[in-house]
C-alpha cells in the first residue's frame, strides 16, 4: 500500500486545467493534514463502485504494480473517514437490494433523486453523497468534498470539516483515474505508450477493462 507523501503540497482547488472558462467561486482551504490509516475495502464497496461506474469488480480490484497497491483500499480509507455515515448507509442499502436489482438499477438508485427518472436531479441524502464521492475518486483520483457541497448543500452534515474540500488523493490515484480509460486515452502527463501512437486509433475500450462485459 502507498502512504502518499507531500500532502502539504496539494492544492485545494476544483478540477481543472489550462485557463478554464468554467471556474466557479468558493475555493475552500485544504484541511487534510495526514493521509488516514489504510483500511481494507470490503467487497461491497467495490461492488457498489462497479455498479456506479460500469466497470467489473475484477478490473477495479486489479492490483497496481510494482507493489500490488490496492486503489480500492486507498479510496475506501478516504471515504471511511470523509463520509463514514453515508458509506455505512450505502453498504447497508446495497445489501438489501443487491439480489433483486441489476447493477445498472443500483447505480441509478444511488445517484438519482428518482431512480427511474434520469433528469429528476441528484439523490441528496447521505447515500447519494457517498456514491458520488466514491465514483469520483475512481474516475479522477480526487476527493470532491467541496464540489459535493456546492452541488448539494445538505451534504455538509455528512462530511467532516477537514474533508469539505477538493484534493488529489495521491499521484498514483491521479494516474489510475478511470475517466482517462473511458476516453481510451491516458492521464495527461503520464503514459507508458510508444512514439507515434497518436496517429493510430487506440485499442478498443474493452482492452482497458478486460473483465468488464461491454454491451
Amino acid at each position: 500500500m502507498t502512504n502518499p507523501t507531500n500532502i502539504g503540497r496539494r492544492t485545494i482547488l476544483k478540477g481543472g486545467a489550462i485557463g478554464t472558462l468554467y471556474m466557479a467561486a468558493g475555493l475552500p482551504v485544504l484541511a487534510v493534514a495526514d493521509f488516514p490509516k489504510i483500511e481494507k475495502a470490503p467487497l461491497e464497496f467495490v461492488q457498489i463502485s462497479s455498479a456506479l461506474l460500469g466497470i467489473d469488480a475484477s478490473d477495479l480490484l486489479r492490483q497496481v504494480a510494482p507493489d500490488n497497491h490496492s486503489m480500492a483500499d486507498e479510496y475506501y480509507s478516504i471515504i471511511y473517514h470523509g463520509c463514514r455515515s453515508g458509506l455505512n448507509k450505502m453498504i447497508a442499502k446495497y445489501r438489501k437490494v443487491s439480489r433483486r436489482l441489476s447493477p445498472q438499477q443500483i447505480g441509478n438508485l444511488f445517484l438519482r433523486a428518482d431512480s427511474s427518472q434520469p433528469n429528476a436531479g441528484i439523490r441528496q441524502d447521505e447515500i447519494g453523497t457517498a456514491a458520488r464521492l466514491s465514483m469520483q475518486m475512481w474516475l479522477f483520483g480526487i476527493w470532491y468534498g467541496g464540489t459535493e457541497m456546492n452541488h448539494n448543500p445538505e451534504s455538509i452534515s455528512a462530511i467532516p470539516k477537514k474533508y469539505q474540500n477538493d484534493f488529489v488523493l495521491s499521484s498514483r490515484a491521479y494516474k489510475e483515474g478511470w475517466i482517462w480509460r473511458f476516453a481510451q486515452s491516458h492521464p495527461m502527463g503520464y503514459s507508458q505508450l510508444k512514439f507515434g501512437h497518436w496517429a493510430e486509433p487506440p485499442p478498443a475500450l474493452q482492452s482497458y477493462m478486460p473483465g468488464t462485459q461491454l454491451n
Binding site: G16, A17, T20, G54, I106, L111, N119, G121, R132, Y144
Partner: peptide, 29 residues
C-alpha cells in the same frame, strides 16, 4: 476543463460543459 467538467455533468445532472442538455444523471454502463 474536460474530461472533468463533462464527466461531472453526468454525475450531478448539470450541463456546464454543454453536452448534458437534458441534465441527466447517469450511472453504470
Amino acid at each position: 476543463t474536460d474530461p472533468y467538467t463533462t464527466a461531472q455533468d453526468y454525475i450531478y445532472g448539470t450541463n456546464t460543459g454543454q453536452l448534458n442538455e437534458n441534465n441527466t444523471v447517469l450511472s453504470n454502463a
